[in-house]
Design a protein around this nucleic acid. Structure first.
Lengths: 219, 219
DNA sequence: GGGTTCATCCCCAGAACTGGCGATGGTGGA
DNA sequence: TCCACCATCGCCAGTTCTGGGGATGAACCC
């Protein structure tokens, strides 16, 4: 059976050329086209496509919001964002909302078809630069790495428990040491990481300020 | 100029067949082969390859540790992990350590060559199932999403600032409201997210317990 | 009008955290 | 041997957070 694809895209030209590409390729069929998120939200649950190509920059409700609302209703429909935006915020928001692929609009037709097949087969296709940005989000800055390295094993253990929101007392119980010891470890952690509170330490530890790297305290 | 590739792999057969593949493909050349992480750490800074293929399961120092130590010395060398492990912990650890690609050993030769080219060209090649797992790590569980949705815009704003480690007073200043208002918002956030402290709220907000989803307080 | 949600502000008491000051014993390197 | 680091434990003062109890006005919907 061919892969059923829906298109959500406001530009009539792009929309019809995508549809044409899909319908003219064996193994694929375009089952619906939508000019707005609102229309897609109304129609897609009935159409039940395998894959949806979703523009981000839609008039009215944007593509990310559309994904966020659509995904709970149609978890099996795999959504590929198709956009010109390469900034990390858009990427993370789209993926967090439930998209499984993220391709740039400039992608050549053959690659786009391959992406549709890949997402339908359990993969997560992305343009190469997008993939690199996602991978980089796992990599902490060298400075943070160096600081983290300076923590002793015991201190690292405490930091992990701190990050889960445990109280000092709970950490003490789990590590089979006294409250005072936990307290001391934490003071050392704060010194080494140059922070003044558990939340700052945790934010640093989780490599955070990922999606929203605006500003931080004491900077 | 062809792409200079080094191989770090303890199995002599796999090692030599990889080398053979690379050397017999135009545009690629195998510049060194290493049977252990220790050897690679000593040699690679001299060899200066463009790309290194790294096994995870090495005797002695493992591949992830090797990457962690190598990357600071050779930031330009792009490292592709080549392994049989598909579990998320290995993947995240490898990427956090500085690997930019993650391919399974069963990958067909043509794809492996494409991956080398891709990583050298600024991408991050990964086997399709690996990519999906990485993307899934951005997607928060439905329950957390629902809770997050219930936050008012103002509360969401407070939560973002909480996540950066600001004090109540600092949040108040930035939002141009009183300490009491921040306090009230935070109490509402805690109620809606079912947490009892800022760190728990932040952990939930950042969709954390990603890499280490062991246990959490009050579970 | 009545109900709801939101955003804003206030007081208070108790719990938890932060940051000083200690201390001991063990381990491992210079 | 001495020094550095680590892990463990203690006390105390001050700060910050948590969780109750209020309150007001505005906006919205039925």
């Amino acid at each position: 059976m061919s892969i059923a694809v829906s298109i959500v895209e406001d530009d009539p030209q792009v929309r019809s050329s995508l549809a044409k590409l899909i319908d003219s390729s064996p193994g694929y069929r375009c089952v619906s086209k939508h000019a707005s998120a609102e229309e897609a939200l109304a129609e897609l649950p009935k159409v039940k496509p395998d894959v949806a190509l979703m523009d981000i920059n839609l008039p009215g409700l944007n593509g990310v919001e559309c994904v966020r609302r659509l995904k709970p209703q149609r978890p099996k429909t795999q959504i590929i964002m198709l956009t010109v935006y390469q900034n990390t915020e858009h990427i993370f928001n789209a993926l967090a909302a439930g998209a499984t692929g993220y391709m740039l609009k400039q992608t050549p037709p053959a690659e786009l078809l391959a992406a549709i097949k890949e997402v339908h087969g359990g993969g997560s296709p992305m343009s190469s630069h997008i993939a690199r940005k996602i991978v980089q989000s796992f990599q902490k800055p060298a400075a943070v790495m160096a600081e983290a390295q300076s923590l002793s094993p015991r201190e690292a253990e405490v930091l992990n428990l701190l990050a889960k929101g445990f109280l000092y007392k709970e950490i003490a119980d789990q590590m089979k040491v006294s409250y005072a010891t936990v307290h001391t470890h934490i003071r050392h952690i704060y010194e080494k990481l140059h922070v003044r509170s558990r939340t700052e330490a945790v934010a640093k530890h989780l490599g955070q300020n990922r999606a929203f790297p605006e500003l931080s305290p004491a900077d």
